[in-house]
Structures are given as structure tokens and as C-alpha cells.
Amino acid sequence: MSATDRRQFLIRTAQMAGAAACAGVLWSPLVRSQAKASAHALRPPGALPEEDFMALCLKCGQCVKACPFETLKLATVADDAPIGTPYFIAREIPCEMCVDVPCVPVCPSGALDREFTDITKARMGLAVIDPEICLSMRGLRCEVCWRLCPVRDKAITLNIVHNEGTNRHVRFEPVINSEHCTGCGICEKACPTEESSIRVLRHKFVQGRLGEHYSPSSDGDFKLQDVRRGTDIAKELNPGDKKQAAPGAGYFNRRGGRDGIIPGSTP
């Protein structure tokens, strides 16, 4: 190879590398902008953390085929999830939480964790409530989300508070407990308001996080107590079998003060 040949070869190689670099500059943002899912596009149960999931998912759709409820879909361009990846929109078809979790073992790449077997451990998203629209919050007897929640009376509990509006009734405020909510979305599907007042969103769009510097002792774990109060009050008011009467149902039957409650009884 002569000096000119070598020179030409090096120049050509540099040109091709340059062209490849240009292509890479255009290509990378395309991939990066694709690799994002919107807050309400939920992953199948057992999905690895989003970064790992997106790296591993081969976009084959075997989980979609395995889902008996046709919950899962593969995304295409301009859908709510990155192209080719499986997702579901709870308001359309929620996850029915099959006990055998058929979508997970068929995943060939492990983007859905094979170790995952207990569907109640799924954390597909977290429910949040719009307190201004929620019928129960407005004092109506709805509680559909609480009744249909598959993690019964754990993921959603009812907080019973005095209804200042009528000054006679109570409100059964649904409360989400993040340590039990699987994010299946059955509540969102069932909510009777025109736009669902309870929605399941990915955790990172819902949950806050205390900083490293935060000292929990300063609030004496106050918040947790406060949130759970509803359950405690419900138990207090209605110590009988919960299956027979909704928590607080006895409230309507009460004559006089709290002592007049007749748990689970019929007049």
C-alpha cells in the first residue's frame, strides 16, 4: 500500500465514521424519546424496574398472547408506551390479577421477572384519588373501588368522617395504602364518574420520597397514624364481621351516641 493509498484509505474510513456519527446523532434522540412511557401506561405484573425492563424486553408480545383478558397490548409509534413494549391502560381493560400470573413465565428475556409468582406482590402502579370529584368523598354511598379492589380492604380502606354538610351523616372516604396496592386498575375501570376519580399511575408519578437528611422522629410517624385512622375508626365503630356490613354501616342504625351501635344486627 503506497502512502497515497493509505492516505485515501484513512480519509475514506474517517468519512464513513463521520457519516456513522451523524447517523448516531440523529438516531440516539429517536431512541431516547421513544424510551419513555406516560404515567398511566402500566407494565405487566412482575416487570423489572423500567430502565431494566426497557433494555431487556424483546418486544415479542408473548405476554400479550398469554393474557386471558386481552389486557396487554404492544405499543406502536405515538402510543402511550415505548414502541413494541407491552402495556395496559387501566380504564380500558385492567389487570385481573390471575393467581397463576400467566404473562410472566412466557417472557423469554426475563424483562418480566421469572421469580415473580405472588400476584399480590405486583406493583404495576399506584392508585390516586381526586378528592373533589370522588362520589364517596362528596358524601354519597359509592365505595365501588373499595368493594371491587382485589386486595380486599387492604389496598383501599375506608376512612369514616363526619359529614359537615348534612351534619347528620358520614362520609366513607376511600384511602389508598401503597404497601398493598398492586396497581391492577380494577378500581379505575369501575369508577362511575365520567372521568375516573381514581386512577392508577406509575409510582414515580405519584410517590414522594423523604430525603436522606430527613429525620422521621420529628413527626413521630404522625402521617401514617393519621391515614390509618379510618381503618381504626371503622373497626371501632363496627367490630362485627366485616363481610356482613360495610365498615360504618352501623352508623346509620345508631340511635343516640356511639354506645347505641348494634354491630351487624338487623332491626
Binding site: 429517536l30 431512541v31 421513544q34 430502565e51 433494555a55 418486544k59 406502536t76 415505548p82 414502541i83 413494541g84
Partner: peptide
């Protein structure tokens, strides 16, 4: 390697 996802699979017209 750089993006941490299968780069061609995210744009592949064949896969699409």
C-alpha cells in the same frame, strides 16, 4: 452500549 437499550430494536422497520 451508550443508551442502555437495544438501539436498533427501538427503530427497526423490520421489527415494526
Amino acid at each position: 452500549f451508550i443508551l442502555g437499550v437495544a438501539a436498533f430494536e427501538w427503530v427497526s422497520p423490520i421489527a415494526i
